[in-house]
Design a protein around this nucleic acid. Structure first.
Lengths: 243, 243
DNA sequence: ACCTGAACACCGTTCAAGT
DNA sequence: ACCTGAACACCGTTCAAGT
């Protein structure tokens, strides 16, 4: 965000949310860009939530007229798509597998990192996981080198390419599920590690709920289950190799 | 849906979507109920999608005035919550673990069943997985008996209650992730088993993509991965028992 | 008690018109 | 080329008023 942008934001502060700056001074030409609109939208979404983001509010925040946005994006849908692409790019940068560690550690770190990033950026989580979005061939292409490197690491340990990708997908879906569930609980105002009240007449369930919850998944539980999944993968690998 | 309901629906057919029946004959008292509104909303959502469901459209479908809905539900939010409770009830009924089979088969069948049900009812999927919703203590309570039975089956095989619940949660999250991903692809118009174009310069990835996809998860892939997860659980159990 | 239309604030989008 | 307000169709919700 540059200087002139900041000025506009400051000016827009106390103004009515009804779409336009108060002074009604027309903004000079070339002072808006698609990038600024995207940046402003992501900022505003962080504050008020992606579902509350509207075109008038965004325009007010940027200090421009509502309809000006439509010169850069044909529709709100198209704007949201641009936000999603931006979110995808940010996250993809995190998915470079760590070098100099074994496959197990690499997978553990990779998905922990992904989960932490998602938890730190609820808006990105909403954009990428909570709504449909087309993963363009172009965006997908950028993930190939790091995915190839990851599969290579697993292949070196003895997994076939098929098994390697399968394991990666499994961990992806598990992490995805955990992140989305936590996000849902958060949207509704419940902490992820809130204990589930124990139903005393169900002995085994009560016992299990002493250390776990059914309403979400805590930090410790995610890690423990991730380790369990990796254990399973390691064991299947060992069994295949000794067979 | 009873006879008088059908009549109203028929009447509402060709009418403007602007909220009220054309004849403007006032509906007699006691002819609307919360249950009918919920049923009509679910029906309409199935046709046009949950995101396109609006109060005026629902009213037109039911042949009543828009504002009448507000006598039964304080807000659209409250109505959606009622739809969610209904969806939860339907799905819970599916989660009774099969008897007379071993733990592995039971888990396999249970989650396959859950997945198939979700795939057959996109609206329920949207309500339960794609948006935040509070799982009320009341709703949760109804799941206790079947969960206890499931944990008992796993415990009989040698798992601790903690391990048993952990495995169930893992499979839940995995299935959840798979269902949500497929739903997203569907919303965007892509089949789940669409092959990802193979990037020839990445040898291992290309090899893996001959039998898999990165854009979703096919029927066969879901089952194969589910089996792999169960394999891992079985192996960890065996190792624990021989140690 | 139950159902209703008029009215309001807000939203996404189009369009003709400014610079 | 870029930015704008007026205008429109639609939405969720309130409220005073019917029966």
């Amino acid at each position: 965000m540059d200087q002139s942008m900041r000025r506009k934001l400051a000016k827009a502060q106390g103004e009515a949310a009804s779409g336009r700056a108060a002074g009604s001074t027309r903004v000079e030409r070339g002072s808006i860009s698609a990038e600024q609109i995207v940046a402003g939208a992501l900022e505003l979404a962080e504050e008020i939530g992606i579902d509350s983001l509207t075109m008038p509010k965004l325009a007010a925040r940027l200090g421009i007229g509502v309809t000006s946005i439509y010169w850069y994006f044909r529709s709100k849908e198209e704007l949201i798509e641009a936000l999603t692409v931006e979110a995808a790019r940010t996250f993809h940068a995190l998915m470079t597998p760590p070098r100099e560690v074994d496959w197990r550690t690499a997978l553990f770190e990779l998905f922990s990192r992904l989960r932490n990033a998602m938890r730190a950026n609820p808006v990105y989580c909403d954009l990428l996981f909570m709504r449909g979005h087309r993963l363009s061939d172009d965006a997908l292409m950028h993930t190939w080198p790091s995915t190839e490197a990851l599969i290579a690491k697993l292949a070196a340990a003895g997994f076939s390419p098929h098994e390697a990708l399968q394991n990666v997908v499994t961990l992806s879906l598990y992490t995805r599920g955990a992140v989305v569930l936590e996000r849902q609980m958060q949207q509704v105002g419940l902490p992820a590690d809130m204990p589930t009240p124990a139903p005393s007449q169900f002995a085994l369930l009560s016992k299990a709920l002493e250390t776990q919850t059914m309403r979400g998944i805590s930090d410790g539980a995610y890690v423990e289950q991730l380790e369990a999944l990796l254990d399973g993968m390691a064991l299947r690998l060992k069994e295949k190799q000794t067979a």
